[in-house]
Simulated assay, not measured.
Amino acid sequence: MPILADPIWPVALLAAVQYVDAAMCWKPMDVVRRCLDDVHAPQAIRPLLTPLKLAAGSGLLLGLVVPYLGVLTCASLVAYFAVAVTMHIRARDLGRNFRNAVGLGVASGLVSLCYL
């Protein structure tokens, strides 16, 4: 099956970021726990972060052969990071974690262009 995304490296990099982030959320590291606490993330949604991030990484990689899945995954990541940015703004947490959320949201949007 041919790989349809071009270039591939931004897709692979964003997928790797999602997988690493999923691992960091599995048993939340202190930095992750503090970030979630700072934005007042409900305890009920925290266990969902690992499977969501694993699904995002997988959707990005599967999108290499099924481009619409890659675009849908990127759109979902943009929405996810829009919620994260909003949570940071509401909590007046505008430091490094806010900048990371903005950057990853923008990167997700740009990676979607690789599938087009």
Rank of each mutant, 00 (worst) to 15 (best):
V32Y: 03
V78M: 02
L72W: 04
M1F: 02
A23S: 13
G57V: 04
M87K: 11
S108D: 09
T86K: 01
P10A: 07
K53P: 06
L69D: 02
T86W: 05
A101T: 02
R96G: 13
L104P: 07
A23W: 10
L116S: 09
I3T: 15
A56F: 00
Q43C: 11
P51K: 09
R92G: 09
A5R: 09
L52T: 04
F98L: 03
A5Y: 03
V65D: 01
Q18K: 10
D93E: 01
A82P: 06
R34E: 10
G95N: 03
L49N: 07
L48Q: 14
S58T: 11
R99E: 13
G95Q: 00
I89W: 05
F98H: 08
T73A: 03
G59Q: 07
V102T: 07
A16M: 10
D21W: 12
L49D: 02
L110T: 04
N100M: 15
F98M: 00
R33A: 09
G103R: 01
S112C: 09
G70Q: 05
A75W: 11
G109C: 03
D30I: 12
A55K: 06
P67W: 09
Y80F: 07
Q43D: 10
I45F: 03
V66S: 08
L54A: 09
G103N: 11
R92H: 13
L49V: 10
C25W: 09
A82T: 03
